[in-house]
Simulated assay, not measured.
Amino acid sequence: MASYISSLRSLVGHRPLIFNSASGGLLNDKNEVLLQERTDTGDWGFPGGYLEYGESYKQAVVREFKEDSGLSVVPVKLLKLSDSFEYEYPNGDQVQPINCFYLVKYVGGKLLDHRTNETSNLKYFSLNSPPHFFNEQHEEMFNVLKGSL
């Protein structure tokens, strides 16, 4: 079955759309944050993604984190609601993502050890040495996470 996003895009093409998304910041015992290297840009971002129809932000961050990283998490605290960014994907899709960014807690699973259609690599980064983020929204989330500790 096609995803909600794929179904919409088949109808509207690359036109600008507003989507709801959820992302999570997971820290290890060294206070390093887990980030995902994206297959579409080769840049880094937080595990997360767009809500499916009928899904809550909390449900989406749990599902997306598992899909993107292999890890099971639970949302602990909402760190930021972000709605002021626009982004154009490499394929031309234009979006204004309304994102709920959560601090999440690890509850199980192990990091993916293979490439998927969205994740080429996973790595923990020091909060003092951020990588190149794929968009400004993820850079802002990184700074919000760093400022919350």
Rank of each mutant, 00 (worst) to 15 (best):
1 M>W: 15
1 M>Q: 10
5 I>M: 15
7 S>I: 07
10 S>K: 15
10 S>G: 08
11 L>T: 11
14 H>R: 11
22 A>K: 06
23 S>Y: 12
23 S>H: 09
26 L>M: 10
27 L>Y: 11
28 N>S: 07
28 N>P: 08
30 K>E: 10
34 L>K: 09
36 Q>G: 02
36 Q>F: 05
36 Q>A: 06
37 E>S: 11
38 R>V: 10
40 D>L: 13
42 G>Q: 13
43 D>Y: 15
43 D>N: 15
47 P>S: 02
50 Y>G: 07
50 Y>A: 08
50 Y>D: 04
51 L>E: 04
51 L>W: 09
53 Y>R: 14
56 S>R: 12
57 Y>G: 02
58 K>Y: 07
58 K>M: 13
60 A>Y: 09
65 F>W: 06
67 E>I: 10
70 G>F: 07
71 L>D: 03
72 S>T: 09
72 S>I: 06
74 V>R: 09
77 K>M: 07
79 L>T: 06
81 L>C: 12
83 D>K: 14
83 D>Y: 14
88 E>Q: 11
90 P>S: 03
90 P>M: 03
91 N>F: 04
92 G>H: 02
93 D>M: 12
97 P>C: 04
97 P>T: 03
98 I>W: 08
98 I>C: 07
100 C>I: 00
106 Y>T: 01
108 G>Q: 09
112 L>K: 08
115 R>N: 04
116 T>Q: 03
121 N>G: 06
124 Y>A: 01
124 Y>N: 00
125 F>E: 00
126 S>M: 03
126 S>H: 02
133 F>L: 02
134 F>I: 02
137 Q>M: 10
138 H>N: 05
138 H>G: 00
141 M>Y: 12
144 V>E: 00
145 L>T: 00
149 L>G: 02
149 L>C: 05
149 L>D: 02
